[in-house]
Amino acid sequence: MLKFDDAQARFAASVAPVCESESIWLELAPGRVLASNLASRSEEPLPAAGTLLQPGHIAALAAQGYVEVPVFRLVEVALLRVDDAPTDAAPDANSPMLEALVHSLGAVVRRRGHVPAEGARLHDALVDLIEEGECDVVFVSGAPQLFAGALVAAGGELLCRQVDMNPGRAVLLGKLRGRPLVCLPADAAAAYVSFVLLVTPMLRRMQGRALIYPPVSRVEPDFFVPHHGEGDAFWRVERATAADGTDWVRAAVRADSQPDASVATLGDASGLVRIAPHMSGRTQGRVPYYDLSRWLC
């Protein structure tokens, strides 16, 4: 089992930027990553290669006469769900959420699939997705134990079996014929947290971005932390600013909440805080804060 920091680094190091680039009209470039440095036609600076282009960058480029710019092509994703078919009583929460998360990073979903929780069926689905070669990365939802066996049986390599974090402990990372595969936990809240913290740096690196880890600030928590043993705990929180200008956060979901309530509050969080192992009671001091407005773009 990997510590969180080691796992985060391993996920990012397992991939390389998508090398192909294309030249597109300037007005279509916002949200795309600049693939190469451009020659300045005046004394004004230009965005460097690896910059995620924003409207302000477009203005700067247009002011220097550029009408087209080279950008990395979009990262293409396959989503594969492994479980029983959804029903009215047990609908599929993960697939729509994961597709929305992929789109928030500026990647695109090219393939969607579903197989029952059977090792042979999962093995065949993974091989088919990789052999077709249509996608740069495959995200599997659910059945981590089956995923590990199916990957190895297909000739793949398991790079990360578990991460010492909560939620998200059951996330796995592998490679099959040079392509990365990530198996996310079946629980929607755990899949959400592991995607934000482990997968988004990986996707940014594949996109060719210069900055793959957004800034992590520190905030004052205003909630009681139950004892959680080993591993880093990541709480969904809502951020606020006190009258004296101090940033503080309150929990967006209680530690003793039911799973349905946990999913219901997924959209309420402004970020995640990292609580160190064995920290319990009323926390003393400031803790790392992962701002979702930065980590999900």
Rank of each mutant, 00 (worst) to 15 (best):
L126N: 04
E27R: 13
E20M: 01
M97R: 12
E132I: 00
P45T: 12
P47N: 10
G113T: 03
V82G: 09
S40H: 05
D92C: 05
V77I: 15
E99A: 14
M97T: 11
F72M: 10
V77E: 08
L74K: 13
E68R: 15
P96M: 06
G56N: 11
D136M: 06
C19T: 10
A49T: 04
A39K: 14
L122P: 09
H114F: 03
P47D: 10
R111V: 12
V102P: 06
A63G: 06
G65M: 12
E132R: 14
L74P: 00
A89L: 14
E44H: 14
Q54V: 11
A107G: 08
S40C: 15
R10C: 05
A120C: 00
R73A: 11
L122S: 09
A90C: 11
Q54T: 12
A78M: 05
T87M: 05
A100N: 10
L46Q: 12
A16L: 14
L80Q: 06
V67K: 13
F4H: 04
I130D: 10
P47I: 11
R32S: 02
V127T: 13
L80C: 06
A13Y: 05
H57K: 02
E134A: 13
G31L: 01
V77Q: 08
L28G: 00
Y66P: 05
V75T: 14
M97C: 03
P55C: 08
Y66I: 08
N37E: 13
V33P: 01
E20T: 03
N37W: 03
V69P: 08
D84R: 14
L61Q: 05
Y66D: 05
E76M: 06
G133C: 03
A89H: 06
V102D: 08
A125E: 01
A39R: 15
E20A: 15
D83L: 04
D124S: 12
A60Y: 00
V77H: 09
